[in-house]
Every structure is written in structure tokens, then in C-alpha cells.
């Protein structure tokens, strides 16, 4: 087994953009339905947790609970948007719809297809984050203009989760098995990434693990600093971590998919 093949940089061409456009066109056909969740979900979470649960939690680190979780809601939505698009979504297009097979019979390559899917996954995260901002802003929970930086950042963070989802789509034996990584990785990440309570209440070792292997931890730290309006230089560490893992994930996920599809 040649490990090196997983690290071969893929060729980026305009073909990827055509695949991105195909997915965007499908998304826009059902725009009303697809654009609704980013409006509704933060409202539900904010009422249930921010204002419901928040009655019992006065402040965390000196901020009201609703304000504490608002950036986490955006981060989680960034994670889910890209991850589900590139795990379930890509798997359905690849396996059930045979969309990838149809496209690679044209001048587009399999690399174009996978990169287009990844870019689209990141775009979905960006769309979610962008739509959530005004809703959360209505409650006065985020600071402008810092929070506008969340929009480009959502694309980068989304790309990371898109790559994760694509790695899973590349190895899953069937669609049901995608539940395992969700149960073992995505859900723990949802809970233990400093999302709904601060990371520092956890045992020190768990904090280190969260920082080492849970991408959402870094995403939450950056988005929280932006919504609080207090970005500092220490965020460069989080940003570097995300860029590094994203770059590796990008190359590896494309090659894993190639291994599955080029036979």
C-alpha cells in the first residue's frame, strides 16, 4: 500500500467550478426550503437554550448565556452545513444518482468533481453563517463590524468540514454506516468544543485533546472572538491549525475519493 498516493496534490481547474455550479443550481431550485433552516434554527436554539436554560445560568466568563452560545450556534451550523453536504449529499450523488459517473464521461475529471463538491460544501456553510448573522444580530448578541469576518471565515472552516465529510463518503461501505462517524466524532464535537459551556471546566487532558483533534474547538474560538468583538493575536494559532488541517484534508479527501472511484 503506497501511502504517498494520498498526498498527491490534485489539479485545480475550472471544471471544479462547473460542478460547483451544478450543485448551486439544484440548491436554488429549492431555494425557499433550503434557505429556511438558517433562519429558524438559531431562533429555536436561542429561545430554548439561551433564554430558557439561560434563566438558570446567569453568566459565563462575564457574558450572558445567550451571548455565549450565539457564536457556537453559527459554528455548529458551519460544521453541519458542509459535513452533511459532503458526506450524505456527495454519497447520494455518487452512489445512488450516479451523477459523478455521468460527469466524468465529459471532459471533466474525477478531481474536478470532488473539488467542486468540496467547494460547494464550503459554500453551504457560508450561506448558513451569512443568513444566521442578521437573525442573531436582531437579539443584539453579536458585535459589528468584527462579525462580518465570520462570512469569509465560514468558507474556510466549511471547507475543512467538507473534507472530513468527503473522507467518510470515500470509505463508507453504505449510507447507513455514515452514522458511525457522526455518533463517534461529530456529536462529541458538537458537545465538547467549548460550544455550550467553556472548555476550561473540563479536565486539563480533555482540553488538550479537544484542541488537538476537534476542529470545531478552533472554529468556535475564532467565531466567538469575532462576535464578542475581541479578536486577538492568539487566534492566529487557531487559524493556522484550521488552515493546516484543511490543506491536508483537502488533498487526502480528493485522493481517497479517487481511490474509490477510479477502477
Amino acid at each position: 500500500m503506497d501511502i504517498g498516493m494520498y498526498f498527491k496534490p490534485p489539479e485545480l481547474t475550472s471544471g471544479a467550478f462547473k460542478v460547483w455550479r451544478r450543485n448551486k443550481d439544484v440548491f436554488m431550485k429549492n431555494a425557499k426550503l433550503n434557505l429556511l433552516p438558517p433562519f429558524i434554527e438559531p431562533l429555536l436554539y436561542l429561545f430554548a437554550m439561551g433564554f430558557g436554560l439561560g434563566m438558570f445560568i446567569e453568566e459565563i466568563d462575564g457574558v450572558p448565556y445567550a451571548k455565549f452560545i450565539a457564536p457556537a450556534l453559527i459554528s455548529v451550523s458551519v460544521m453541519y452545513g458542509a459535513f452533511f453536504e459532503c458526506s450524505y449529499g456527495s454519497y447520494v450523488r455518487m452512489y445512488y444518482q450516479k451523477t459523478f459517473d455521468a460527469i466524468i464521461a465529459t471532459p471533466l475529471s474525477i478531481e474536478d468533481v470532488i473539488i467542486g463538491e468540496l467547494l460547494w460544501g464550503a459554500t453551504r456553510s457560508t450561506i448558513s453563517a451569512t443568513l444566521m448573522l442578521p437573525v442573531i444580530a436582531l437579539f443584539g448578541l453579536i458585535t459589528f463590524p468584527h462579525s462580518l469576518l465570520i462570512i469569509p471565515f465560514a468558507f474556510l472552516a466549511g471547507l475543512l468540514f467538507a473534507c472530513l465529510g468527503m473522507c467518510i463518503a470515500a470509505v463508507t461501505p453504505n449510507i447507513m454506516s455514515i452514522n458511525y462517524p457522526i455518533m463517534l466524532f461529530i456529536t462529541p464535537m458538537f458537545l465538547f468544543s467549548g460550544t455550550f459551556f467553556p472548555l476550561n471546566v473540563l479536565p486539563e487532558i480533555v482540553q488538550y485533546i479537544a484542541l488537538a483533534i476537534l476542529p470545531l474547538t478552533h472554529v468556535v474560538m475564532i467565531i466567538r472572538a469575532l462576535t464578542f468583538g475581541t479578536p486577538g493575536l492568539e487566534l492566529l494559532f487557531n487559524l493556522a491549525w484550521i488552515i493546516g488541517v484543511c490543506a491536508i484534508g483537502f488533498v487526502v479527501s480528493v485522493n481517497m475519493m479517487k481511490k474509490r472511484l477510479v477502477v
Partner: peptide
């Protein structure tokens, strides 16, 4: 041009869109 064994038409699109979206792949 390729007619594969399995009809891998794009179920997310109409007849017209299937052809039109495909045309983009050929520039």
C-alpha cells in the same frame, strides 16, 4: 459522446436542464 449501460440522468433536474447543465461541462 457516451451512452452508459445505466441511465445516469441527473434526477435533480428536468429533461431540458439535464441537457443544458451537461453542455456547460463541454464549455
Amino acid at each position: 459522446g457516451v451512452v452508459p449501460q445505466e441511465n445516469n440522468l441527473d434526477p435533480d433536474f428536468t429533461v431540458y436542464e439535464n441537457l443544458f447543465v451537461f453542455s456547460r461541462y463541454f464549455d
